[in-house]
Design a protein around this nucleic acid. Structure first.
Lengths: 218, 218
DNA sequence: CGCATAACTAACCATGTGGTAAGTTCTGCC
DNA sequence: GGCAGAACTTACCACATGGTTAGTTATGCG
């Protein structure tokens, strides 16, 4: 197509964009394919060959990058998503209200990405089997989430402590349960369920004033 | 073992207990096996042969009774359970408080039957795929549940209407979400989550006085 | 009793699965 | 340029799956 000299120019410049070896790039392609398919069909229903096909590779080629097969891939997918969430959830600079605000925004984002939501919803329940590859992952995930929200809610009670006997730990369990349960209903009937609105309702029930929060940020 | 005459006595008398043909009995055995395995491993992970084995039959034998395979079996399992729930949930004689009381008792029962809870938890999320055999079943199920609780909560607001601006429809969504979400956490960490207590907490938040309700009924 | 029919089983099939082995092509670095 | 090693592909394997067919055994009713 082009002369050798121009080709050299067309290539990604070595230092900035090309610290990825080709393998790294295909690895990412594979993880993305896996995330996509897992989202659509859950974990159990997807095969290595399915993922490989979507990543335009042979299933043996996939095994070359992920010898652990689907299990390894799954953890990769989960951790990648978690990294994103952690950034916004555990921002040290935010106070309790800020954290709750972030939570609402995550819900807003979820409402825009049904695939990922479906993945987590399916998996967090599939994973109740002790032998499921993601079992300990999800146990831990919920521990962390409960602790996080307990802290946030505790802070809230301390300062604005209107509703007395609210135990941060148990309310945290309820908050998380609400979010999960809303997802289940929303996935089955998106037009019927407004996850964000129900979250805000619940916060209001707790005595958190959410008036003045942005409705959306996109 | 016994003489023919005694045998005749030992047999189930034809009219009352023996209206079941042998096929009906094995059918029940199969459904029970299916329920058991689905509970342990979800729907997708279980094969016809698994179910057949547990019912002590060949997989071809199973197909003889349930030509529709797993799908047909699944619906059978779900409907069987629902029949039970419907009896207690939609009891015409109960008022709003009675219905909520029943709900609490169902949660108590759930806490004693992790298998069934796991089945519903896994399935209600697997079934978010439009092609899942139980998709419409679960859509409908949640519609009915939302309607039920909306009615109950509406009645509550009417009579004891302390907390004003509570919309029965949306609170119903929250209530159901809470129940589902609690199950997810409970299945992953049973020792950490007290589903009944969290439900009661939530009802209290709504202004429902639950003091004096039985702790357990077994 | 006897016999039609229900209730199976044994044996097969095509297909899809995860996994391995051996070979080929490509990359990127000296 | 050339070459070691990564990045694959092709071709297998053993096994499980859903489903069918043909044959065997049991049931229960006239």
């Amino acid at each position: 197509m082009t002369s050798p000299d121009l080709d050299h120019v067309a290539d990604d410049p070595p230092p900035p964009a090309r610290r990825y070896t080709k393998g790294d790039r295909t690895k990412e392609r594979i993880v993305e394919a896996a995330a996509d398919l897992f989202s659509k069909s859950g974990y159990l229903a997807v095969s290595q060959r399915d993922i490989a096909a979507q990543a335009e590779i042979t299933h043996a080629g996939l095994l070359h990058h992920f010898p652990g097969g689907k299990d390894e891939l799954l953890m990769q997918v989960l951790e990648r998503r978690d990294a994103d969430d952690a950034v916004v959830l555990f921002d040290e600079h935010l106070d309790a209200w800020g954290h709750l605000d972030q939570t609402v925004r995550i819900v807003e984002r979820n409402a825009r990405t049904p695939g990922l939501v479906a993945l987590y919803a399916k998996l967090s329940n599939e994973a109740s089997d002790v032998n499921h590859p993601a079992h300990t992952y999800f146990r831990r995930r919920y521990e962390i989430l409960r602790e996080h929200f307990a802290t946030v809610l505790g802070e809230l009670v301390d300062r604005h402590g209107d509703r007395s006997a609210l135990d941060p730990d148990t309310v945290a369990q309820q908050l998380i349960a609400l979010l999960d349960g809303l997802q289940t209903q929303w996935l089955l009937a998106p037009e019927t369920i407004d996850m964000r609105a129900r979250l805000v309702d619940f916060l209001a029930l707790l005595g958190v004033d959410t008036t003045g929060w942005r409705t959306d940020s996109a």
